[in-house]
Protein backbone atom coordinates (compact mmCIF):
# COMPACT_ATOMS: atom_id res chain seq x y z
CA UNK A 1 0.00 0.00 0.00
CA UNK A 2 1.23 3.50 -0.82
CA UNK A 3 1.96 6.02 1.87
CA UNK A 4 -1.10 8.02 0.89
CA UNK A 5 -3.47 5.06 1.16
CA UNK A 6 -2.02 4.09 4.52
CA UNK A 7 -2.84 7.59 5.71
CA UNK A 8 -6.35 7.45 4.21
CA UNK A 9 -7.21 4.13 5.78
CA UNK A 10 -5.39 4.65 9.12
CA UNK A 11 -7.27 2.96 11.93
CA UNK A 12 -9.27 0.63 9.68
CA UNK A 13 -8.77 -3.10 9.57
CA UNK A 14 -7.81 -4.05 6.02
CA UNK A 15 -9.13 -7.12 4.23
CA UNK A 16 -7.87 -8.91 1.18
CA UNK A 17 -9.34 -7.84 -2.16
CA UNK A 18 -8.82 -8.98 -5.73
CA UNK A 19 -10.32 -6.36 -8.03
CA UNK A 20 -9.04 -7.93 -11.25
CA UNK A 21 -10.60 -11.27 -10.40
CA UNK A 22 -13.81 -9.44 -9.47
CA UNK A 23 -13.91 -7.74 -12.87
CA UNK A 24 -13.20 -11.00 -14.69
CA UNK A 25 -16.00 -12.79 -12.83
CA UNK A 26 -18.39 -9.85 -13.32
CA UNK A 27 -17.60 -9.86 -17.04
CA UNK A 28 -18.34 -13.58 -17.34
CA UNK A 29 -21.56 -13.20 -15.37
CA UNK A 30 -22.78 -10.27 -17.49
CA UNK A 31 -21.71 -11.94 -20.73
CA UNK A 32 -23.55 -15.12 -19.76
CA UNK A 33 -26.66 -13.17 -18.77
CA UNK A 34 -26.64 -11.13 -21.98
CA UNK A 35 -26.07 -14.21 -24.18
CA UNK A 36 -28.98 -15.89 -22.46
CA UNK A 37 -31.27 -12.88 -22.93
CA UNK A 38 -30.19 -12.59 -26.59
CA UNK A 39 -30.89 -16.30 -27.18
CA UNK A 40 -34.25 -16.23 -25.44
CA UNK A 41 -35.65 -12.90 -26.59
CA UNK A 42 -33.63 -11.77 -29.68
CA UNK A 43 -33.99 -8.04 -30.52
CA UNK A 44 -36.40 -5.89 -32.52
CA UNK A 45 -35.71 -4.98 -36.16
CA UNK A 46 -38.77 -3.53 -37.88
CA UNK A 47 -38.05 -2.56 -41.49
CA UNK A 48 -38.19 1.14 -42.38
CA UNK A 49 -41.33 2.72 -43.77
CA UNK A 50 -40.75 3.50 -47.48
CA UNK A 51 -42.50 5.74 -49.98
CA UNK A 52 -43.05 2.58 -52.05
CA UNK A 53 -45.01 1.01 -49.21
CA UNK A 54 -47.09 4.15 -48.70
CA UNK A 55 -47.74 4.44 -52.46
CA UNK A 56 -48.95 0.85 -52.59
CA UNK A 57 -51.09 0.80 -49.44
CA UNK A 58 -52.14 4.45 -48.96
CA UNK A 59 -51.70 6.16 -52.36
CA UNK A 60 -53.98 9.11 -51.50
CA UNK A 61 -51.85 9.81 -48.43
CA UNK A 62 -48.69 10.10 -50.56
CA UNK A 63 -50.41 12.36 -53.09
CA UNK A 64 -51.75 14.55 -50.29
CA UNK A 65 -48.20 14.79 -48.90
CA UNK A 66 -46.95 15.95 -52.32
CA UNK A 67 -49.80 18.45 -52.79
CA UNK A 68 -49.23 19.99 -49.37
CA UNK A 69 -45.51 20.28 -50.07
CA UNK A 70 -46.45 22.24 -53.20
CA UNK A 71 -49.02 24.45 -51.48
CA UNK A 72 -46.79 25.04 -48.45
CA UNK A 73 -49.12 23.45 -45.88
CA UNK A 74 -46.79 20.49 -45.27
CA UNK A 75 -45.02 20.66 -41.90
CA UNK A 76 -41.53 20.55 -43.42
CA UNK A 77 -42.40 22.98 -46.24
CA UNK A 78 -43.36 25.53 -43.57
CA UNK A 79 -41.03 24.29 -40.78
CA UNK A 80 -38.59 27.15 -40.21
CA UNK A 81 -34.97 26.81 -39.06
CA UNK A 82 -32.82 24.83 -39.60
CA UNK A 83 -34.51 23.88 -42.93
CA UNK A 84 -36.10 27.09 -44.26
CA UNK A 85 -37.58 30.45 -43.34
CA UNK A 86 -41.05 29.10 -42.53
CA UNK A 87 -42.74 29.69 -39.18
CA UNK A 88 -44.81 26.53 -38.61
CA UNK A 89 -42.48 24.72 -36.20
CA UNK A 90 -40.46 27.53 -34.64
CA UNK A 91 -40.54 27.31 -30.84
CA UNK A 92 -39.95 30.26 -28.55
CA UNK A 93 -40.50 31.22 -24.92
CA UNK A 94 -41.09 34.94 -24.96
CA UNK A 95 -38.08 36.50 -26.68
CA UNK A 96 -36.00 33.33 -26.23
CA UNK A 97 -35.79 31.20 -29.37
CA UNK A 98 -32.52 29.32 -29.89
CA UNK A 99 -34.12 27.77 -32.98
CA UNK A 100 -34.58 31.16 -34.66
CA UNK A 101 -31.15 32.35 -33.48
CA UNK A 102 -29.41 29.30 -34.97
CA UNK A 103 -30.84 30.13 -38.41
CA UNK A 104 -31.15 28.04 -41.56
CA UNK A 105 -28.19 25.66 -41.46
CA UNK A 106 -29.63 22.64 -43.35
CA UNK A 107 -31.29 24.53 -46.23
CA UNK A 108 -34.07 22.59 -47.91
CA UNK A 109 -36.37 23.93 -50.63
CA UNK A 110 -39.21 21.48 -50.00
CA UNK A 111 -41.10 22.02 -53.29
CA UNK A 112 -38.05 21.43 -55.41
CA UNK A 113 -36.35 18.72 -53.30
CA UNK A 114 -39.36 16.50 -52.58
CA UNK A 115 -41.55 16.92 -55.70
CA UNK A 116 -40.39 18.96 -58.69
CA UNK A 117 -36.77 17.79 -59.05
CA UNK A 118 -37.55 14.04 -58.73
CA UNK A 119 -40.28 14.49 -61.37
CA UNK A 120 -37.99 16.47 -63.67
CA UNK A 121 -35.38 13.70 -63.49
CA UNK A 122 -37.81 11.18 -65.04
CA UNK A 123 -39.59 13.60 -67.39
CA UNK A 124 -37.37 12.56 -70.31
CA UNK A 125 -39.05 9.15 -70.14
CA UNK A 126 -42.53 10.66 -70.33
CA UNK A 127 -43.16 13.61 -72.69
CA UNK A 128 -46.61 14.24 -71.16
CA UNK A 129 -44.98 14.71 -67.75
CA UNK A 130 -42.44 17.11 -69.25
CA UNK A 131 -45.25 19.24 -70.69
CA UNK A 132 -47.21 19.15 -67.41
CA UNK A 133 -44.15 20.27 -65.42
CA UNK A 134 -43.47 23.08 -67.87
CA UNK A 135 -47.09 24.23 -67.65
CA UNK A 136 -47.05 24.10 -63.84
CA UNK A 137 -43.86 26.11 -63.53
CA UNK A 138 -44.95 28.67 -66.13
CA UNK A 139 -48.18 29.36 -64.22
CA UNK A 140 -48.57 32.23 -61.74
CA UNK A 141 -48.52 31.40 -58.01
CA UNK A 142 -52.25 32.20 -57.84
CA UNK A 143 -52.96 29.77 -60.68
CA UNK A 144 -50.83 27.08 -59.02
CA UNK A 145 -52.68 27.59 -55.73
CA UNK A 146 -56.05 27.25 -57.44
CA UNK A 147 -54.96 23.99 -59.13
CA UNK A 148 -53.64 22.69 -55.81
CA UNK A 149 -56.87 23.48 -53.97
CA UNK A 150 -58.95 21.86 -56.69
CA UNK A 151 -56.80 18.74 -56.69
CA UNK A 152 -56.81 18.50 -52.90
CA UNK A 153 -60.63 18.66 -52.85
CA UNK A 154 -60.83 15.99 -55.56
CA UNK A 155 -58.36 13.85 -53.63
CA UNK A 156 -60.74 13.80 -50.67
CA UNK A 157 -63.16 11.81 -52.86
CA UNK A 158 -60.55 9.53 -54.39
CA UNK A 159 -61.03 5.76 -54.37
CA UNK A 160 -58.66 2.87 -54.88
CA UNK A 161 -59.99 0.45 -57.51
CA UNK A 162 -57.98 -2.55 -58.60
CA UNK A 163 -54.80 -1.11 -57.17
CA UNK A 164 -55.22 2.22 -59.00
CA UNK A 165 -56.02 5.53 -57.32
CA UNK A 166 -59.02 7.08 -59.06
CA UNK A 167 -59.16 10.84 -58.42
CA UNK A 168 -62.35 12.55 -59.71
CA UNK A 169 -61.81 15.05 -62.51
CA UNK A 170 -61.25 18.64 -61.37
CA UNK A 171 -59.97 21.99 -62.63
CA UNK A 172 -56.44 21.18 -61.51
CA UNK A 173 -54.49 21.80 -64.73
CA UNK A 174 -51.33 19.72 -65.05
CA UNK A 175 -51.49 18.29 -61.50
CA UNK A 176 -53.24 14.95 -62.28
CA UNK A 177 -50.44 14.03 -64.71
CA UNK A 178 -47.74 15.13 -62.22
CA UNK A 179 -49.33 13.28 -59.28
CA UNK A 180 -49.79 10.07 -61.27
CA UNK A 181 -46.12 10.22 -62.27
CA UNK A 182 -45.16 10.90 -58.64
CA UNK A 183 -47.13 7.88 -57.47
CA UNK A 184 -45.52 5.71 -60.17
CA UNK A 185 -42.08 6.94 -59.15
CA UNK A 186 -42.78 5.95 -55.54
CA UNK A 187 -44.29 2.60 -56.53
CA UNK A 188 -41.16 1.82 -58.50
CA UNK A 189 -39.14 2.29 -55.29
CA UNK A 190 -36.82 5.08 -56.44
CA UNK A 191 -38.44 8.17 -54.88
CA UNK A 192 -36.25 8.37 -51.75
CA UNK A 193 -33.10 7.75 -53.77
CA UNK A 194 -34.03 10.56 -56.14
CA UNK A 195 -34.85 12.95 -53.26
CA UNK A 196 -31.54 12.14 -51.64
CA UNK A 197 -29.34 12.50 -54.76
CA UNK A 198 -26.50 14.89 -54.06
CA UNK A 199 -24.68 14.68 -57.37
CA UNK A 200 -22.05 12.29 -56.01
CA UNK A 201 -21.86 8.53 -55.75
CA UNK A 202 -21.09 8.49 -52.03
CA UNK A 203 -23.94 9.25 -49.66
CA UNK A 204 -24.20 9.00 -45.89
CA UNK A 205 -26.74 11.72 -45.10
CA UNK A 206 -30.41 10.72 -45.30
CA UNK A 207 -31.90 13.94 -43.92
CA UNK A 208 -33.99 14.75 -47.01
CA UNK A 209 -35.29 11.25 -47.72
CA UNK A 210 -36.25 10.78 -44.05
CA UNK A 211 -38.14 14.08 -43.92
CA UNK A 212 -40.50 13.16 -46.79
CA UNK A 213 -42.69 10.79 -44.78
CA UNK A 214 -42.39 12.50 -41.39
CA UNK A 215 -46.04 13.59 -41.35
CA UNK A 216 -49.16 11.46 -41.70
CA UNK A 217 -47.55 8.26 -43.09
CA UNK A 218 -45.03 7.88 -40.29
CA UNK A 219 -47.42 8.94 -37.53
CA UNK A 220 -49.98 6.41 -38.76
CA UNK A 221 -47.38 3.63 -38.72
CA UNK A 222 -46.06 4.61 -35.29
CA UNK A 223 -49.59 4.84 -33.91
CA UNK A 224 -50.13 1.23 -34.97
CA UNK A 225 -47.21 0.29 -32.70
CA UNK A 226 -48.23 2.54 -29.79
CA UNK A 227 -45.10 4.64 -30.20
CA UNK A 228 -46.63 8.13 -30.15
CA UNK A 229 -45.52 10.83 -27.73
CA UNK A 230 -48.63 10.67 -25.48
CA UNK A 231 -47.97 6.91 -25.19
CA UNK A 232 -44.42 7.56 -23.89
CA UNK A 233 -43.13 6.72 -27.37
CA UNK A 234 -39.81 8.51 -26.76
CA UNK A 235 -38.60 5.69 -24.53
CA UNK A 236 -40.20 2.72 -26.32
CA UNK A 237 -38.97 0.12 -28.77
CA UNK A 238 -41.16 -1.32 -31.51
CA UNK A 239 -42.59 -4.62 -30.35
CA UNK A 240 -42.68 -5.65 -26.71
CA UNK A 241 -39.04 -4.96 -25.88
CA UNK A 242 -37.77 -2.78 -23.07
CA UNK A 243 -36.82 0.65 -24.39
CA UNK A 244 -34.84 3.62 -23.16
CA UNK A 245 -36.19 3.47 -19.61
CA UNK A 246 -33.53 6.00 -18.58
CA UNK A 247 -35.42 8.71 -20.50
CA UNK A 248 -38.43 8.40 -18.19
CA UNK A 249 -38.07 11.85 -16.64
CA UNK A 250 -37.77 13.60 -20.00
CA UNK A 251 -40.69 11.61 -21.42
CA UNK A 252 -42.78 12.22 -18.30
CA UNK A 253 -42.65 15.99 -18.90
CA UNK A 254 -44.56 15.62 -22.19
CA UNK A 255 -47.45 13.94 -20.34
CA UNK A 256 -48.14 16.80 -17.91
CA UNK A 257 -48.96 20.51 -18.08
CA UNK A 258 -47.50 23.02 -18.78
CA UNK A 259 -45.52 20.97 -21.31
CA UNK A 260 -48.63 19.19 -22.57
CA UNK A 261 -50.32 22.44 -23.57
CA UNK A 262 -47.30 24.65 -24.34
CA UNK A 263 -46.76 25.93 -27.88
CA UNK A 264 -43.04 25.31 -27.28
CA UNK A 265 -43.05 21.91 -25.53
CA UNK A 266 -39.58 20.84 -26.70
CA UNK A 267 -37.91 24.09 -25.69
CA UNK A 268 -39.65 24.03 -22.31
CA UNK A 269 -38.82 20.36 -21.71
CA UNK A 270 -35.22 20.89 -22.82
CA UNK A 271 -34.81 23.83 -20.45
CA UNK A 272 -36.40 21.91 -17.57
CA UNK A 273 -34.23 18.83 -18.12
CA UNK A 274 -31.14 21.07 -18.25
CA UNK A 275 -31.97 22.69 -14.92
CA UNK A 276 -32.80 19.36 -13.24
CA UNK A 277 -29.59 17.84 -14.63
CA UNK A 278 -27.59 20.73 -13.21
CA UNK A 279 -29.18 20.20 -9.78
CA UNK A 280 -28.43 16.45 -10.02
CA UNK A 281 -24.81 17.29 -10.89
CA UNK A 282 -24.45 19.70 -7.96
CA UNK A 283 -26.10 17.53 -5.26
CA UNK A 284 -22.86 17.41 -3.19
CA UNK A 285 -23.09 21.20 -2.71
CA UNK A 286 -26.84 21.60 -2.21
CA UNK A 287 -27.95 21.62 1.45
CA UNK A 288 -31.10 19.59 1.94
CA UNK A 289 -30.52 17.35 -1.08
CA UNK A 290 -27.10 16.24 0.10
CA UNK A 291 -28.56 15.44 3.55
CA UNK A 292 -31.16 12.99 2.22
CA UNK A 293 -28.85 9.96 2.62
CA UNK A 294 -28.53 10.69 6.35
CA UNK A 295 -32.29 10.97 6.74
CA UNK A 296 -33.07 7.84 4.72
CA UNK A 297 -30.68 5.63 6.63
CA UNK A 298 -30.10 2.92 4.04
CA UNK A 299 -26.41 3.41 4.86
CA UNK A 300 -27.11 1.72 8.20
CA UNK A 301 -27.92 -1.43 6.19
CA UNK A 302 -24.96 -1.14 3.85
CA UNK A 303 -22.41 -0.75 6.65
CA UNK A 304 -24.31 -2.72 9.32
CA UNK A 305 -21.41 -5.10 9.99
CA UNK A 306 -19.02 -2.20 10.47
CA UNK A 307 -21.36 -0.45 12.92
CA UNK A 308 -21.99 -3.69 14.82
CA UNK A 309 -18.28 -4.45 15.12
CA UNK A 310 -17.35 -1.01 16.45
CA UNK A 311 -20.41 -0.30 18.58
CA UNK A 312 -18.72 -0.41 21.97
CA UNK A 313 -15.51 1.43 21.11
Amino acid sequence: MSERSSRQYRGYRMVEADLVKELAVAFLVVLGLVLLLALLFSSPDEPTLTAQQVALTHPAELEATAIHILDGKNAIANYGPPYNHGTGSVQSLGPISPQAWAGVTVPLDAKSVFVLTPLRRVSALDPALGQALAAFQAASPAQQASWENAYQSALDHARVVGGRLLVPASASGPLPVMMQAYLDLARGGTLEASINLNGHVYQTDFTRALLLLQGAPLTRTAAGQELLGPEWGQMKEPGNYPGAVWLWFYTLLYQIPPFLTSPAPDLLAGATVSVVTLIFLLIPWIPGLRDIPRKVPLYRLIWRDHYARHKRK
Partner: peptide
Protein backbone atom coordinates in the same frame (compact mmCIF):
# COMPACT_ATOMS: atom_id res chain seq x y z
CA UNK B 1 -34.20 21.93 -33.57
CA UNK B 2 -36.13 23.74 -30.82
CA UNK B 3 -32.92 23.96 -28.78
CA UNK B 4 -31.11 25.42 -31.79
CA UNK B 5 -28.64 22.53 -32.20
CA UNK B 6 -30.52 20.48 -34.84
CA UNK B 7 -28.46 21.95 -37.67
CA UNK B 8 -25.14 21.16 -36.02
CA UNK B 9 -26.10 17.87 -34.36
CA UNK B 10 -28.32 16.58 -37.18
CA UNK B 11 -29.85 13.32 -35.98
CA UNK B 12 -31.13 12.62 -39.51
Amino acid sequence: NALGVGGFFNIL
